[in-house]
Write a protein that binds this DNA or RNA. Structure first.
Lengths: 190, 190
DNA sequence: CCTACCGATCGGTAGG
DNA sequence: CCTACCGATCGGTAGG
C-alpha cells in the first residue's frame, strides 16, 4: 500500500535525522540506520535512493520552513520591530517543533552533495538578504541602531541558534520572552 | 632533530585542523592528511599516535585558551560590565588568531574519544559556570537585567559564535564594537 | 619515512 | 524485503 510505504519512508527519515544529529552524517552508516528501523541494510534501498537523499530531504525541508515563514512576514505590513519579533517566533517555532531536523540542517548541510548544495546555499542567502532588509528598514526609520548590517545580522541569527539543540529544558515562551527582550533592547538607540 | 620533529608535528596538526574544518572529522582520512603534508599515509604514524589524538589536541588546546582567559578575568576586580567586555574580547581574540582550530573545537568536539570527552565537557561546563557567575553578579548589582541566567548565557555565547567562521570579512575591532554594543544594550534595564 | 599489507567497514547492487 | 556479495576505502601495523 502506498500509505504504508510513505509511512516507512518517514520512519526512515526520522531515524536518519536522529542518527545524523547524534553521530554526524559521515559517521552514520546505512547499517546503523537499517537496524534502527528493523530492516536488513540492503532493504533500505527499497525506500530510498541513497544516503545523500536523506540528508537532502532533511535539509531542504527545513530550509523551506524558514523560507515560507519569511515570505509571510515580508508580505505583511508589520513594523520592522514587529517583523523581527515574528522572525524570532519563527525560529523558535521551528526549533521546538522539529528539533532534530533543524540540528541536522544547521550542522550537517556541508555534507550535501554538489547537486543540492547550490540550491541550499541560494535559499540561505535569500533568507539572509530578507532578514537584513528588515534590519535596514528599521535603521532607516530610526527604530534600530547599529553600524554594520552584516555583523548585526550574524550576531542576531546566531543568538537564536542554540535553541536548535535544547532538550526542552526551557519552555518556548520563556525563551521567546528572554531572547526577544534581549535582541530588541540590543538594537535600541543608547 | 627534535626541533624538526616538533615542526613536522605542528604542520600535521595545522593541516588536520584545516581538513577537519572543511570536511568534518569523520570524513577526513589519514590518507587525505598525509598527502596534504607530503607523506605516505603510514608515515604519519611516526609523528602521531592516532587520528583521534589530533582532534583531542586541537580541541583541548582551544579549550585551554578559553579557560586561561576566563581565569584572568575572574581574578580581576573589574566590574561585571567590564568583565563581560573582556570576555567578548577574549572570544574575538581567539577567533581571529586561530580561526581554523576554533571552528573544529566548536563543531567537531562530539567526535572526541571517550577518554577525552568528559574532560572536555567538564572544562566547558566550568567555563559556562564562570560566565554565568559574571552575569549573575551584574544582575545582583542592578547593572544587567534578565530573567533566566541560563537562557541569556546561551544567547550571548552564541551571538559571538559566528565569528569563529568568518574569513576576515570584517575587522576584529569593527566586530568587537558592534557585538559589545549590542550585548551590553541587550542586558540593560529597559 | 617507505613498501606492503591487514581486517573491518563502507555505500550500494544483483537476483530472487 | 532478504541473502549474498562487490569494489573501494578506512585506520592502523609489520618490518625494514
Amino acid at each position: 500500500m502506498i500509505a504504508e510505504k510513505k509511512n516507512k519512508k518517514q520512519t526512515i527519515l526520522d531515524a536518519a535525522a536522529v542518527l545524523f544529529r547524534e553521530k554526524g552524517y559521515s559517521a552514520t552508516s546505512i547499517r546503523d540506520l537499517a537496524y534502527r528501523v528493523g530492516l536488513e541494510p540492503s532493504s533500505i534501498y527499497s525506500h530510498i535512493q541513497s544516503k545523500e537523499e536523506l540528508l537532502v530531504t532533511i535539509c531542504l525541508d527545513c530550509a523551506r520552513q524558514f523560507t515560507e515563514g519569511m515570505q509571510q512576514i515580508m508580505e505583511s505590513d508589520y513594523s520592522p520591530k514587529k517583523k523581527l519579533k515574528k522572525l524570532i517566533e519563527l525560529h523558535l517555532h521551528i526549533a521546538y517543533n522539529d528539533a532534530t531536523s533543524i540540528a541536522v540542517f544547521s550542522d550537517e548541510w556541508k555534507h550535501l552533495p554538489e547537486s543540492a548544495l547550490p540550491v541550499f546555499i541560494g535559499q540561505r542567502k535569500e533568507y539572509a538578504n530578507n532578514f537584513k532588509e528588515i534590519l535596514k528598514e528599521g535603521k532607516r526609520k530610526g527604530i534600530f541602531d547599529f553600524e554594520n548590517v552584516d555583523i548585526i545580522f550574524n550576531t542576531i541569527i546566531n543568538a537564536m541558534r542554540w535553541t536548535y539543540y535544547t532538550s526542552n529544558k526551557h519552555s518556548e515562551s520563556d525563551v521567546n520572552a528572554e531572547i526577544t527582550g534581549f535582541i530588541i533592547k540590543g538594537l535600541k538607540k543608547d
